[in-house]
Design a protein around this nucleic acid. Structure first.
Lengths: 336, 336
DNA sequence: TTTTTTTACGGAAACGTTTTCGCCTTTCAC
DNA sequence: GTGAAAGGCGAAAACGTTTCCGTAAAAAAA
């Protein structure tokens, strides 16, 4: 099966390469008869255009880059589902890069993408990232960027998030309504937009209901291997909390792992709620009360927003801020 | 920030474009002094080569395609992790496509990839796929293909799998040693290489230990919304099994969902083992005895094999068959 | 009829690289 | 001192498209 190209088709049909090119793209400059001849032969010879030749000429790649911290995580996995689905609908291709929360990696990937490999980028920033020059550089190189979930306030670009503040508030309020008097907050990487706002929601709810708010109750766990130890200390110290709100899925399983050993029974001794998109949340013992993010929709909306930006001819692109609501799913881990 | 290209660099330095190109690639034809001048300026002006121009010229894309049924699944997610990690090491880029188990989608994606967008493809076939012409076409178009997990016997290409037969045997044998006398097998899409071999292992183990083997004990569930119903029928009918072996992660949670309602207690009434890579397996009640696949390693080895093939200059490429061992992790769901 | 417009197409340039030739100096062996 | 080899670089072709410009014939308008 020798590769066939546009010139090959042209030769077979005794017409010029430009005519073939136009015919394949249904140009109105070409007669219906010729269009049919060209398409029939292309079909017959299984012609596939060379994507990079065409990208080079048009300076449009029909490709987007997706940059996420990880993928073995139900939020990101489902967001990716949403993005990919929308990409297929619009005939875009998706390059994916994992940063594993590393700033170095993120910066390195973005730098490479400045070369013109993609038309746009969808990203959720790495936990390590606190400086954003690399992102601004990408935008300055005329690559569209849309953030989702972990956004970057300092940069002017479209953002798609969930209502983190309200969700943090609602989660805390739910614990309060279930009778908790002393609520701790388990979180990590507090400089991220997501965790920061969730914490603010938590603080506000505690304040509104006259519950104690103190640094002692906020546990920021940034080293995976020390998390269990830190939480154990909190749960067994004096002034133990009777409610616990975990801000990320990664943290949601820790209490299940350590509480049995500590003789703490959920929900009797400690009511627990967490952000989580895990399908198994309902099958844990006790089943986990969770804030569930609309992950697929998050991905879909993010992709849609990026494609909107890319189709725009104008240079003046209105930046938008899309906020989707998360859902409180009440199960047994917060039962009275 | 205006885009700078090779000609721009050449102009600035008063040398030719070809010299710049060679200098950037450390050609021995260029003096060290010139190389340094070029690289310094490139660095200063933040020059990034246009990847598609270079791909076009070299007919090498430094890009691979990854085609998987889904990603919100701990096996595929971790395999992807392994692939991506290896890709970054080798400076390859990864395009990812989800088939959602659809043959149509798989065929459509492969057809597009014939155009030369990628140098090679890593894939795990969709559940719907029973015909393989589209894959052979891709190979005939000179795109390297390496399969993992769900491979395609009919096609001559490298394959990276786990020891499905032995794992199926070991899982069944474990149930037998825990005292099961009548073991059922919960599976799906039995035409796939993976499920087929796991079932063969199950059958062999039953036969070796003189346990009954019958079609009534093998439950192939291909419609998600009917699975619970089918399994309920099996578990409540006459001649109920006292052991259950589920062949895929997707099926591993069903018993946890329905057994409580049926008054069946795991492991007392029914011992249960499943293929699963879920991190939460140990936190379920009872904790789940599982066959755990070396997912990350699977991805890594697959990518390595593909890159080996791609670096080969020779046309005669020895196809290899790499088999990694899965691990039996004994927990409470098969306790005596 | 003549002039203008439209239709349908061909030739060649262009996108940003890499690579093939070829050329001029310098170095080295004899 | 001569010839060969090596070092260092430039001009131009090439990769496979798309697009700009041009033009001949047919159709429409005058």
């Amino acid at each position: 099966m020798d590769k066939i190209d546009i010139k090959g088709l042209a030769r077979e049909l005794n017409i010029s390469a430009s005519t073939v090119s136009r015919a394949l793209r249904d140009s109105h400059e070409i007669s219906q008869a010729t269009i049919k001849r060209v398409k029939d032969l292309a079909e017959k010879l299984n012609y596939q255009p060379h994507p990079y030749a065409s990208s080079l000429r048009q300076s449009k790649t029909k490709t987007i880059g997706i940059i996420v911290p990880e993928v073995a995580n139900s939020l990101f996995a489902n967001v990716f589902n949403g993005i990919e689905s929308e990409a297929q609908n619009n005939n875009y291709h998706a390059l994916i890069y994992l940063t594993h929360e590393s700033y170095e990696k993120e910066a390195s990937v973005l730098k490479h993408l400045q070369g013109g490999r993609v038309d746009g980028v969808i990203m959720s920033v790495a936990a390590e990232t606190k400086d954003f020059k690399h992102i601004q550089n990408l935008i300055d190189a005329d690559i569209q960027v849309v953030f989702f979930d972990r956004v970057c306030e300092e940069i002017s670009a479209s953002k798609v998030t969930i209502n983190d503040f309200e969700s943090g508030y609602k989660a805390t309020e739910h614990l309060i309504k279930q009778g908790c008097k002393r609520i701790a907050h388990l979180t990590s990487s507090l400089h991220l937009s997501t965790t920061k706002k969730r914490k603010e929601g938590y603080i506000k709810a505690c304040a509104d209901y006259n519950l104690p708010v103190s640094d002692a109750l906020v546990l920021e766990c940034n080293e995976d291997d020390k998390t269990e130890q830190q939480l154990t200390a909190l749960l067994t110290g004096k002034n133990k909390p009777d409610g616990l709100f975990a801000a990320t899925e990664k943290l949601s399983l820790i209490p299940y792992a350590i509480c049995p050993q500590l003789g703490i029974q959920i929900p009797r001794d400690l009511k627990f709620i967490s952000f989580s998109n895990m399908q198994v949340a309902g099958l844990l013992t006790p089943s986990l009360t969770a804030i569930k993010q609309p992950a697929f929709e998050l991905g879909k909306q993010t992709a849609k927003e990026l494609f909107r930006q890319l189709e725009k001819k104008k240079k003046i692109i209105p930046v938008s801020n899309i906020v989707l609501p998360a859902e409180l799913i009440i199960r047994d881990s917060t039962k009275k």
